Amino acid sequence: MTSREGPSHIASENPQRLPTKRDVETSIAAMANVAKSDGISAVDESLLEAARRYLADDDIDWRKVAERPADEISATLESDVAKRCVLFLMTAAIFAHGSVQLPRVEASLKIARALGCHEGFLDDLLDIARGREFIGAMRIRAKLMSSHGTSRIQVLKGFWDNMSGYLGLSTDPVLAASYHKLGLLEPGLLGRELWAHYVRNNLRFPGEKGTTGEFIVSHDVAHVLSAYSTEPAGEILAGAFTVGYKARNPFAPLLLVLLQFQAGIKIDFRSEALTGSLDPAGYMDAFRRGLECNADLTYGSWDWRHYAEVPVAELRERLAIPPQAAPAVAGGTYQEVL
């Protein structure tokens, strides 16, 4: 166990910045044109308004920006956050109505190539939109597995830990005991809140039979730090939060939950497939909060154990994670760790 103070500072391992007004305008124009491929709906308008409100520091008239024709959307996306913002908003448009619609995926691909921000997951969504759900979903799952770590060795170890633990081929009683001991810490400390996260969700601790390995703990830590629950609405918010801070395959965790809980495509057999779990305001706010986080919380990049005895509230300040600005989403937040 580490000291209560933890390291004296938290390095900016993921030096993100918020998108500029120009970045947001380009992203909104791209998103609107994706939506216009089969008609802008009230849901699309809610997403566009939420993007303007929670991502732009300056006031933007999204209706005026949305009037730009697709062939007039051109910009030099000079930063990672600009590319990430465009892809994030176009993904929102793709999933706005639940099902992955072919015209919207095709429009996203065209715009992404024009802006120089094409990512492979758009090709996976194209397969899904064309009816090849299994192929597209398996490719997204592969991207998810490769995102659990910052090096190939960590990814391979995580995959082995995942399979061997889940199949019951290996257990680690010492490791499991270290997680059980977190329950002895004072409420409010990161370690104690992580323990509570496992207990309230009836999850097995790493090292126990049938678990998915320790590599997944960074995802659970992100749930605690963001205060987003493991209910469908909370998982989508956590996925959007992750896109903001994650360096390696940032969209993979988000796509998994969007397919499972927004599009009704069963990716994880342990969870029920649902539709319509995306809350526009919470979704955009979660992305912004992730962008403001000054560290990549991924396994192998940020070691939560160094901060196990640091209060969650203090850690949020040190990591620059702002409070939730959007109205609370029913079932989406952990009131205990707000």
Rank of each mutant, 00 (worst) to 15 (best):
A142D: 06
V155M: 08
N162S: 04
G149T: 10
R141Q: 04
I135W: 14
M138E: 11
R130S: 08
I128T: 01
S147L: 02
A129K: 10
T150V: 10
G136Y: 01
R152N: 02
G136W: 04
A129W: 03
R139A: 03
T150W: 06
H148V: 14
S151W: 04
R152S: 00
F134T: 13
I140P: 06
L144K: 14
M163T: 14
H148I: 07
H148A: 05
Q154K: 10
K143R: 15
Y166V: 04
D161G: 06
G131C: 09
S147K: 03
D127Q: 10
F159W: 11
M163I: 13
I153K: 12
M163P: 04
V155R: 04
S146P: 00
D161N: 15
A142C: 03
R139I: 01
F134Q: 15
S151G: 13
Y166I: 04
Y166P: 00
V155D: 11
R152D: 00
Y166T: 09
G136R: 04
M163D: 08
I135P: 02
D161I: 01
H148R: 13
I153N: 09
T150D: 09
G136L: 00
H148C: 09
A142P: 02
I140K: 11
S151P: 12
A137C: 09
F159K: 13
R141V: 02
E133N: 00
I128P: 05
K157D: 10
L156C: 02
I153A: 14
F134E: 15
Q154G: 13
S146L: 03
A129N: 06
F159M: 15
A129R: 02
F134K: 15
L156Q: 06
R152K: 00
E133D: 00
K157H: 09
G136T: 05
G158M: 12
A142S: 08
G165W: 02
G149P: 05
A137W: 01
M163V: 15
R141G: 00
G165K: 01
K157Y: 08
V155N: 11
L167Q: 10
F134C: 05
V155I: 15
Y166N: 11
D161M: 14
A129C: 08
D127N: 07
R141K: 14
H148P: 02
S164I: 11
G131E: 10
H148G: 09
G158V: 05
I128D: 01
L167K: 05
